[in-house]
């Protein structure tokens, strides 16, 4: 059975594309056949985060307009052979694709893949409607900020109105030192406010910047963010993985645990 997951947030810049790249790669590392679709028509990014920007020939809009076959547009990752990308078009508008067309495309991909990840554009307009059209479940990404959480709440409402039942929350870029000082909303604060099932907490980690610079997702690596994304992938597969104890322990304790392999 294949599963179609939309990664969305409402607000821009909270980490949707980074999350898509890392969750997609992580699932592929767990031996699932994965395709990631960049649905942000006009502002494509996922190819760059994955380091596949030089290999694009055809794109999502070409497929929908039948200028090429679906298989021709899929880019196979050089490192993970069961990981594919369907890139977005850079020089077209959001309305080049309709929700109905997206649904059909996704259904075609279901036959071939275990997981289909849809990287949603920011906003709640056409691009958002396209991205959620064919989805079975959603990962809502937010950061511990008032504006991002407000938008996440709105997105959850819209997803529910569209009868998307399985909604999970990822809190990105949390900083323990600031939470301790009382200068950042904690994981519990965010969960209290949003009342959505929490599937992952990703600490603010400079390794993310480095990994994006290099075009190589860091899921599975020993850094905090790498571990966090790995746990998210396992939870998507239904495994019960305990959450990192971000609120109580200091960074040093966590690093110690990490070296001990806990």
């Amino acid at each position: 059975m294949s599963e179609v997951i939309v990664i969305t947030s409402g607000k821009g810049g909270v980490g949707k594309t980074t999350t898509t790249a890392n969750v997609g790669t992580g699932l592929a590392m767990l031996n699932k056949k994965v395709v990631m679709i960049d649905t942000d028509i006009g502002l494509r990014n996922l190819d760059v985060v994955l380091g596949l920007e030089n290999r694009i020939v055809y794109n999502l809009v070409d497929v929908v307009e039948e200028k090429c076959r679906l298989k021709q547009a899929l880019i196979k990752h050089k490192k993970y052979e069961n990981l594919y990308l369907l890139p977005s078009a850079q020089t077209r508008d959001k309305d080049a694709v309709t929700p109905e067309q997206m649904k059909n495309l996704v259904n075609e991909l279901r036959e071939e893949f275990d997981y289909i990840l849809l990287d949603c554009p920011a906003g709640i307009e056409q691009g958002f409607r396209n991205a959620i059209a064919g989805a079975d479940r959603a990962l809502v990404v937010t950061t511990p900020e008032v504006s991002a959480i407000r938008d996440a709440d709105r997105i959850v409402g819209l997803l529910e109105a569209n009868e998307l039942k399985k909604i999970d929350l990822i809190i990105n870029r949390i900083r323990l030192d600031m939470v301790k000082r009382g200068d950042m909303l904690s994981v519990n604060d965010v969960c209290d406010i949003l009342s959505v099932n929490l599937i992952g907490v990703v600490p603010d980690d400079e390794h993310i910047v480095i990994s994006t610079n290099q075009g190589e997702p860091l899921v599975g690596s020993a850094c905090l963010a790498g571990k966090a994304f790995e746990s998210i992938c396992k939870r998507i597969l239904g495994e019960e993985v305990p959450f990192m104890d971000l609120d109580k322990k200091g960074i040093l304790d966590m690093l110690k645990n990490l070296f001990k392999g806990k």
């Binding site: 008032v146 407000r150 709440d153 939470v179 000082r181 200068d183 909303l185 406010i193």
Partner: peptide, 18 residues
């Protein structure tokens, strides 16, 4: 009040009014 408490209060109000 810590800034995170301020944030939480603001958010609660925002989400209700939204």
């Amino acid at each position: 009040k810590s800034s995170s408490e301020v944030a939480k209060d603001r958010l609660k109000f925002l989400l209700v009014s939204d």
